[in-house]
């Protein structure tokens, strides 16, 4: 594999807009800047992921018990009967 991290879309100004254009979507100059800022924000957030690897996880769609099940454990009020 020849690509390096510097080839990733987030690292190249305008490249995300090209991805959008390649899908047949009109992109103006103002759009290009906005798309870059938003997707850069997403890339930066993912670099702060609380999990170093997602190998043993499933997306929330398949793991609904983790949302609903967490609730079951905490679903009675603490200070008074409910």
């Amino acid at each position: 594999m020849n690509s390096s991290i510097s080839d990733s879309p987030a690292r190249q100004p305008g490249s995300r807009a090209e991805i959008v254009r390649a899908q047949g979507v009109f992109v103006s100059a103002a759009d290009e800047d906005r798309i870059g800022r938003i997707t850069d924000g997403i890339s930066a957030a993912l670099l702060k992921s609380p999990l170093p690897s997602l190998f043993d996880t499933e997306p929330a769609h398949f793991d609904r018990a983790q949302i609903s099940g967490a609730a079951a454990a905490t679903n009675s009020t603490r200070g008074a009967s409910s």
């Binding site: 879309p9 995300r16 807009a17 991805i19 959008v20 899908q23 979507v25 992109v27 103002a30 759009d31 906005r34 798309i35 938003i38 997707t39 997403i42 890339s43 993912l46 992921s49 609380p50 999990l51 997602l54 996880t57 499933e58 997306p59 929330a60 769609h61 793991d63 983790q66 949302i67 967490a70 609730a71 905490t74």
Partner: peptide, 29 residues
């Protein structure tokens, strides 16, 4: 203009954001 940025999000980024949802929700909960 508001919608458009989603076309620039990669599949891996989208799925990572989904995968992280349960563990983040549990931590915040």
């Amino acid at each position: 203009a508001r919608m458009q940025a989603g076309f620039g999000v990669t599949a891996v980024e989208y799925l990572k954001a989904l995968h992280l949802r349960s563990s983040i929700a549990r931590a915040v909960s």
